[in-house]
Design a binder for these strands. Structure first.
Lengths: 251, 251
DNA sequence: CAACTTCACCATTTGTGAATTGGTTAGGCT
DNA sequence: AGCCTAACCAATTCACAAATGGTGAAGTTG
């Protein structure tokens, strides 16, 4: 299966070998490097910048695998290629890390950081939601709102609260903002992990969040951009205010 | 392979069926729900909170798969279980994904989404930076600023521009905001990948970004919170304005 | 003896195909 | 009209083989 097209480079080992001075030692590696550079230079670009496997390439170039690896190591240090076990050898710089570890960020963040980030992101997301929400979005929010009031346990309430906030983020119709919201949310849940409320089996009927949430959804439904943002900001500030005594009690 | 131990619950279908009033319709779903709740209640916790597959469980409980699925849907909506195709059904809340794939978000985002998100995040990050930046932070920004002016190629300029914006985010002294900035930045680089400028070998001396950046850094240095946010917002809006003709030219 | 060559082995990744599992639909039945 | 059954669909998991860079041990050569 010859996926990758490449041409054979005639060995020019001897030419360079005898021409250089004081290379009684380690000239093999240098010759392989020259061979490899010549190979790369005359190589056409197949889009995918993958080189043949070492075991093939060393035969193609007429050098041993050890020497080829020395040459490849030089090019890798220069940033001209990058390698990975099981993947192969590729031309160019190593691609940026494809994934972000939630726990890594969460481990260096505290609840205050989380609250600050929420206060920055979520009001503006609510503003976008007020601009882009569909009727179905709003209907879904109203349904969650009603279910939130009917929650019979804090656990169920927090699940529904989560759902409502995410519905708002989804209504913003911006997958990137939704992605950032999800990242922030995952970190929040990691940071406040285990911080359960024990003061009552279910949220009281006059819990501030019910009215807060209603104001937010109402503003979104009325396409009141500023009102949605303000309502969300007020809600989060109230949540923050209630969080402080909890933290003090934990000390 | 019976990985999961569970006991058979004797059908109590009839008891509930005849006891309820006015349930000539849709009592099947309710009976299945009661069966399922009884099953979950008497079930011991095997650490792994996995339930048997639907096809087994409906036989065990003596209900049809359709009714079982209705009951499972209710519990899922309550946040008591979570399900996923190919994985199974599990007790508890859906686990948060430990890693977020950049390309997954980037693949569903467009440059407009990116710009909107930047306009939301970065001005507020600049505000935080104005509040928390140390002298070393500001000195580093000024150095990057000077290097940006001295860039000899667009590629080098963009590298330094990147660095400056990240220094600002770092100065906010909020690892969570910095993490969100990094995520956003990685997505931005993926979305606009390959959108290279061909109109000149290096940025012109009167490029708007130079003055923009100077205003931002100056506001941060003077601890002018609102000024830093406003300067960053103006900068990004200018970037956005310059982006539009590029997009039109691409059509 | 020092360097090179060759070979074997290791850890990671990729690819493939079968089996599993939640989600959905069509047909028949009560 | 609603329920049941069966079949199918799509996503996931699992096991296994092949591919690939990384490493070291033995033999070879000058």
């Amino acid at each position: 299966m010859a996926k990758y097209a490449y041409q054979i480079v005639k060995p020019i080992w001897n030419r360079f070998n005898v021409a250089r001075e004081a290379d009684r030692d380690s000239n093999g590696g240098h010759a392989a490097l020259v061979q490899l550079q010549a190979y790369l230079a005359q190589r056409e670009q197949p889009g995918d910048g993958r080189l043949p496997p070492e075991r093939e390439l060393c035969e193609t170039l007429g050098v041993s695998r050890g020497d080829l690896r020395k040459a490849l190591a030089v090019l890798e240090k220069d940033g001209r290629i990058w390698r990975h076990v099981g993947k192969g050898t590729f031309i160019g710089t190593r691609p940026i890390s494809e994934t972000v570890a939630i726990s890594e960020i969460a481990g260096r963040s505290n609840p205050s950081d989380v609250m600050r980030a929420r206060l920055i992101l979520e009001p503006e997301i609510a503003r976008e939601a007020a601009l882009h929400a569909t009727f179905d979005d709003i209907a879904g929010m109203r349904q969650s709102l009603a279910q939130t009031r009917a929650a019979t346990s804090w656990r169920q309430y927090e699940h529904l609260d989560n759902l409502l906030h995410r519905q708002i983020a989804q209504a913003a119709r911006n997958t990137l903002l939704l992605g950032l919201f999800d990242v922030l949310n995952a970190i929040r849940r990691t940071v406040v992990w285990g911080r359960l409320r024990a003061d009552g089996a279910r949220p009281p009927a006059d819990h501030h969040s019910f009215a807060d949430h209603e104001r937010i959804v109402a503003a979104v439904a009325e396409r009141d951009l500023g009102g949605a943002a303000a309502a969300m900001r007020a809600h989060l500030q109230e949540v923050e205010r209630r969080l402080i005594p909890l933290r003090q009690a934990a000390e």
